[in-house]
Design a protein around this nucleic acid. Structure first.
Lengths: 132, 132
DNA sequence: AAAAAATAACGTATATTTACGTCAAAAATA
DNA sequence: TATTTTTGACGTAAATATACGTTATTTTTT
């Protein structure tokens, strides 16, 4: 790998990928779910819930914060974290856009075209065969 | 990192994370979008569209295939890839579940509770401050 | 039968993610 | 004031992802 190459795609594609990447670990899903169900959202609490060390949880929290999914507000020694509803809305609209794109155009694909019946595992004996 | 730890979360959380992970790179988003708009979905075509080498594109295709987002059917020397609409539906329902979870419960959080006004960047001068 | 076309497999190098321990600093408490 | 609590910063090691060139194999074309 010489460079990252991600910047060669559209900003929409990059944005979508970043959003999904933030959710691409079960710990971060769990953190968001926990934050959604409690008022007492401090780091210590979360690391007691999750099967991970506190520093690891903190790392996941940072990732979620960088992606904009959560906000943190310091109150004394404690830091309160909570979900940013704006970002959740953005995830919703962005996912809906992508899903619409993917499902609308799909019937055009050869594999799902009923006028070309010999193309899937049901009918094609070579489906899924590895080239040796 | 000793072990992966991902297996310590619920299967739902793992499944969601895997699905999102498959979409966590702009190239894979671009591939899905391209597959949605064309009938001629063979590897060579896609690598001419994307700013990546053919082998790299193939790698991303494998990732999407492993995740179940695309199917491939070999016809002669060419391999035709297409989106699996079932998986797209699964992404939709799973995302909707998560979004419902996250938006429903959010008002309970302290940070978004109007009865505790001093907690966000507008009112809290310490918001976002790094502990040095 | 030989050459060309197309693809997956393999190997490799670099970058990033994941997981955690240790440490220092700020605030609360004794 | 000293101790405890809480947190983020830093360093590190292993795992995984990304990007690509090379190679072998199959099919098509010549």
């Amino acid at each position: 790998m010489v460079s990252s190459k991600k910047e060669l795609f559209t900003v929409e594609q990059q944005g979508a990928a970043e959003l999904f990447k933030a959710l691409a670990h079960p710990a971060r899903i769990a953190i968001l779910e926990y934050l959604a169900t409690t008022r007492d959202c401090i780091t210590g609490d979360i690391s007691e819930i999750l099967p991970l060390a506190r520093t690891t949880v903190n790392q996941h929290l940072s990732a979620l914060k960088s992606a904009g999914f959560i906000q943190g507000s310091i109150s004394g020694a404690k830091t309160y974290y909570c979900i940013d509803p704006t970002k959740v809305e953005k995830l919703k609209s962005m996912t809906n856009n992508l899903l619409r794109e993917l499902s609308d155009a799909n019937p055009h694909c050869l594999c799902n075209d009923s006028s070309k019946p010999i193309s899937h595992e049901d009918s094609d004996p070579l489906y899924g065969k590895q080239l040796p």
